[in-house]
Amino acid sequence: MTMPDFLLTASAFVLVMVALGLIRILRGPEDVDRMMAAQLLGSGGIAALLLLGVATEAKAVIDVALTLALLAAFASVAFVQGISRPDGDDSKETRGE
């Protein structure tokens, strides 16, 4: 097995794994659980993308992964803020302990 083949297989494996995690989205029961599944898919997707990019030597894919990492983090933060302020207002409850 050549290196690109291995990386492609690994990419498919990671993708299948995190896709299984999507069952959590179906099952819930809470928004937080669904969010976790989405986050897992986010990092798994980034990993799969990187593997794919290196396997096929498509440089631009790394930039896509970079953008994805940045904005996935942003969306996650927005989501947690959304949960923590049901009325759309901010609160101090998001502080760390």
Binding site: A69, A73, V77, V80, I83
Partner: peptide, 23 residues
């Protein structure tokens, strides 16, 4: 770039993990 991606994931994971735990 690769290392930066991982650092982003670490940072976001830590923050979001904390916030999600609160939620």
């Amino acid at each position: 770039k690769l290392v930066t991606i991982w650092l982003f994931a670490l940072l976001a994971g830590a923050t979001v993990g904390q916030l999600m735990a609160c939620a």
